[in-house]
Each structure stands twice: as C-alpha cells, then as structure tokens.
Simulated assay, not measured.
Amino acid sequence: MFIKRERGYYLILVIVVIILGLLSRELSSWFPKWVGSILWGLMVFFIMGFIFRDRTTRHTALIAAIFSIGVEVAKLYHTPWIDEFRYTKIGGLLLGYVFSWNNISLYISGISLGAMCESLCSRIRISK
C-alpha cells in the first residue's frame, strides 16, 4: 500500500520508541530483555519510514530488516577501534556486543509490529 508519511509524526514515533527502549533497560527487573530488541527493530522501521517517506510499507519494512540484519552481522566483526566504540554507552546501544540469531528474529518482530501499525493507521485514515 502506498502512503505518504508525515516526517514530523515519524520523528515523534522514533523519539517515543527510543525513550521506551531506554526505560526498558533502566527498568530491566520489570521488563524481559527481549523487549528492548523488539523496540530497536520498531525504531529502525520508524527511522526508515522517516527517510523513505514515499515508499510502500512493505518496501520500508524490507529496508529496515536488511539494515537490522546488517547491524547484527556486523557484531561478528572485531577490531580494536570498533570494540572500543561498542563498549561506550552509545556504541552499545547502537551496535550491541554479541551476535545473536535470536536478536534478528526480535528485530523482525519489531519491524513487523511497525508495519502492521502503519498499515492499520493508513487504512483507518483512508476509510474516513
């Protein structure tokens, strides 16, 4: 389905998901660890929606999935400079530390959640 995304809304969504993701880490005794990975995938979907505002939901989800898998696979690459960055707060949040197949499935779940929400919202908007 073709939609034209409003960048302002997507920027707000990205910020909200980042805050939720940081809260899920701070309140880790209340939330399972996998919640953060789903939120990371959701954030990537919204960022790609912000960047590729004229693409279909399916295309945006595919770009988000390729990007997310690429970031996860990049965890297999180790050099002193990238490992040094990974062990900073921001580096750990952006790149993570250790490759995990499970993370890929959680990222895809977050991306799928974003795509489903976007499709539902665009259908509601069209029907009005």
Rank of each mutant, 00 (worst) to 15 (best):
R58Y: 11
R86E: 06
T56C: 06
G110T: 11
G92Y: 12
A65C: 10
A64I: 08
V73W: 10
L106Q: 08
L13C: 08
S127G: 07
W40G: 08
I90D: 07
V35W: 02
T79R: 13
E6F: 09
E84K: 08
I124F: 11
I19P: 00
M48H: 10
I124K: 13
I15Y: 05
Y97K: 14
L42I: 06
M48R: 01
G49R: 09
L113H: 00
S37T: 06
L27S: 01
F46H: 11
I126C: 08
G96F: 03
S28R: 09
C121R: 05
T88S: 14
F31S: 00
R55L: 15
T57W: 02
L62I: 14
S29D: 10
I19L: 15
L76D: 04
T79S: 15
L106F: 13
H59Y: 06
S112C: 14
L23P: 00
M48K: 04
V14R: 02
K75G: 02
S24E: 02
S109Y: 01
E72I: 05
L27V: 00
K128T: 04
Y77W: 12
G114Q: 12
S29K: 06
S105K: 07
L13W: 07
T88N: 11
I69L: 15
T60G: 09
I3W: 06
L22M: 03
L62D: 01
A65H: 03
L27M: 08
S119L: 10
N103S: 15
T56E: 09
T88L: 03
I111Q: 07
V71P: 00
S122T: 10
S29H: 13
T56L: 06
I38A: 03
S112K: 02
F45Q: 04
I19T: 09
L62R: 13
E72W: 07
S112R: 01
G41Y: 02
V14Q: 02
L76Y: 06
Y107F: 15
R58L: 15
I51E: 04
I104L: 03
L13H: 08
D83E: 14
V16M: 03
F45D: 03
L11V: 05
L62Y: 03
I126V: 14
G96K: 01
V44E: 05
Y10E: 13
I126L: 14
G92F: 08
P32V: 11
H78E: 15
W34L: 01
W40H: 05
G21D: 01
L93P: 02
R25M: 01
S127D: 13
R125G: 03
R55T: 07
V14P: 01
Y10N: 14
F46E: 05
L22E: 02
R25Y: 02
L62F: 15
I12P: 00
K89D: 04
W34N: 07
L113T: 11
L62W: 11
Y97R: 14
E26Y: 12
I12E: 03
K33W: 12
R7A: 03
A64C: 02
W81R: 09
G92L: 04
F45A: 15
K75P: 10
I111M: 12
I104C: 07
H59A: 12
S28G: 06
I66G: 05
R125L: 13
V14T: 06
F85K: 03
R53Q: 10
T79N: 15
K4S: 11
N103C: 08
I12F: 15
S68M: 07
P80K: 12
G36E: 00
G36L: 00
W30H: 04
